[in-house]
Amino acid sequence: MKPSLEVRIAGLTLRNPVLVASGIIGYGREYERLVDLERIGGIVTKTVTLHARAGNPPPRICETPSGMLNSIGIENPGLQGFLEQKVPILRELPCAAIVSVEGEDVGEFCELVRGVDGSGAAHAIEVNISCPNVGPHGLRYSTDAGMAREVMNAIRPLTRLPLIAKLTPNVTRIAEIAQACEDCGADAVSLVNTFIGMAVDARARRPILGTVLGGLSGPAIKPLALAKLWETVQAVDIPVVGMGGIARPIDAVEFLLTGATAVEVGTAMFANPALPEDCVGAIEQAVAALPSAHVEDLIGALEVPEGRGVIRAGKAARREAGRHAS
């Protein structure tokens, strides 16, 4: 039996659960000679903001042990530039195009969602409420469940495209934010964005990044990301897209087993552009070994001893809270 890798996120059907994360390959064209997009599920674009952004001053990147700090600052052409220059590229992509957007306030989020919806080039929208590199705005929306609600409530009526809320791990309880997004109409959540980090040049007595703080990604964060994923899948019923530190093909299988419906591959692609395709291969192999040969039976199939690893912010806790309330 040929293994079936197709997954669905609300109205979005992916040929397989492997996506390229936002900020890694731009809008697809920059990497067209390095990655075979026909073999992967889709790409998430570089985040689009309402107005063009020049990005942060250098240095913007710094390699760390098994990881990388970045403070790019969402350099992008803005919504108008995106519609004019990038939409034609997205239309030609041989895979799903998920457009990432980030607003500085609720009004901007609304304009962006309307614009991207109207472009007709997006298969879904990833709502980036979690970038650590654009001042307090992004993190404000995903460290505060109330503000996440405000954004999701405002944009939900504006589009029928699947809305995927991208969450920051820089919170005490990521599950609470995920639940807030679910309550307000998110079709899925994706996590994790980068962990806030810092690097210091002791000899120069200076921070290495131009913005002092940046976001940590790469294999160093994989165990942290898996824990956040584990916490979240116990708390929500909508699909969860997992990412954070995938660097070997088998890592993608680990995320699916933990409960991710799809995965996003990021930083490690800089070293190995074929990594997303290799991840598809690893998932295919794992699925082929299942009696059903269907990827659905891999997702969340982690065998956890009864009662272990339960996180109190889980679905059960919420249902319990609901009962008390009623």
């Binding site: 900020g23 890694i24 390959i25 731009g26 920059e30 990497y31 390095l34 570089k46 020049a54 990005g55 942060n56 001053p57 250098p58 240095p59 913007r60 990147i61 710094c62 390699e63 990388m68 970045n70 790019i72 350099e75 930083t267 800089f270």
Partner: peptide, 27 residues
């Protein structure tokens, strides 16, 4: 010379600051 991540213009990790001029609004 400087550190680069993607090397192909996608990640925007290697900005070059420019002097004030017609092109200085971008990296």
């Amino acid at each position: 010379e400087g550190p680069m991540a993607c090397g192909v213009g996608a990640c925007r990790g290697c900005p070059v600051p420019l002097l004030p001029g017609p092109d200085s609004g971008r990296y």
